[in-house]
């Protein structure tokens, strides 16, 4: 995909206010990503608009692809119909995410902000599926030590000093940095590359956090994430 821009996102909702509100919410963590709201009908009623969705896809497409997130069923039907009418060349780089609108939208926005490619942004959105069940698993280090011997495990324990703890923007920064390393790194046992999982840990100022990797090559990633946390994520 020869596009120079970042992957764009389109939020399709029956309500224009939900779509616009989601842009606002995701914007906190993705200040420069292309986020386009396509909510409501052309005349401002509840519903979805083929023309709005088609227009939003065109607006969001900078050549690197577009991920579309939808709320209720007919929003998906409208989005699929809009895809049918695209030129083959454009359609090839547009994906409809099978993900909850809000959670998936925020996760995808962070991924797009970080300059991830289309498949990664789609994957970030779809990682939000079953986010609720992930929350109950959060903090359980099950599976994170499997396969890694104690001798290859790198771990750092840091105390969060910034006001917001690991929430919203700091969580996004941590996930963004973690995503630059190929190795798996965990925060209190939770995948450091999953924004929703990290945010759902609910770690506040003063919390003790274990950053670890079972990967023999993971020390650098652990150190980098620990340094970011110790720096307070740039917050006072």
């Amino acid at each position: 995909m020869g596009g120079s821009g970042k992957v764009g996102l389109v939020f399709v909702s029956h309500s224009s206010r939900i779509a616009e509100g989601l842009v606002e919410l995701a914007r906190q963590m993705a200040p420069t990503a292309t986020l386009v709201a396509a909510g409501g009908t052309d005349d401002g009623r509840i519903g979805t608009s083929f023309d709005r969705v088609s227009g939003a896809i065109a607006e969001a497409d900078a050549g690197s692809g577009v991920v579309v997130l939808c709320d209720l069923g007919s929003a998906i039907l409208t989005a699929e119909t809009a895809l049918d009418f695209l030129d083959d060349e454009v359609r090839a780089r547009v994906r409809i995410a099978d993900a909850p609108l809000v959670e998936g939208g925020v996760a995808a926005a962070v991924s797009a902000e970080g300059g991830d490619d289309l498949d990664h942004v789609l994957g970030a959105a779809e990682s939000a599926r079953g986010a609720a069940s992930e929350i109950s698993d959060a903090g359980t280090p099950a599976g994170t030590t499997a396969g890694g011997s104690e001798t290859s495990r790198h771990s750092r324990t840091v105390t969060l000093i910034n006001a917001d703890g690991l929430h919203a923007r700091p969580a996004a920064e941590l996930v963004k940095l973690a995503s630059t390393f190929p190795q798996r790194v965990t925060v209190n046992g939770t995948d450091a590359k999953s924004l929703l999982a990290i945010m759902s840990l609910g770690l506040t100022k003063g919390a003790t956090v274990e950053i670890a990797s079972d990967d023999p090559e993971g020390a650098q990633a652990v150190d980098a994430l620990a340094a970011l946390a110790e720096s307070g994520f740039g917050e006072a």
Partner: peptide, 8 residues
């Protein structure tokens, strides 16, 4: 012009 699922 049809806003609901019936349009698509």
């Amino acid at each position: 012009t049809v806003g609901g699922a019936a349009g698509p």
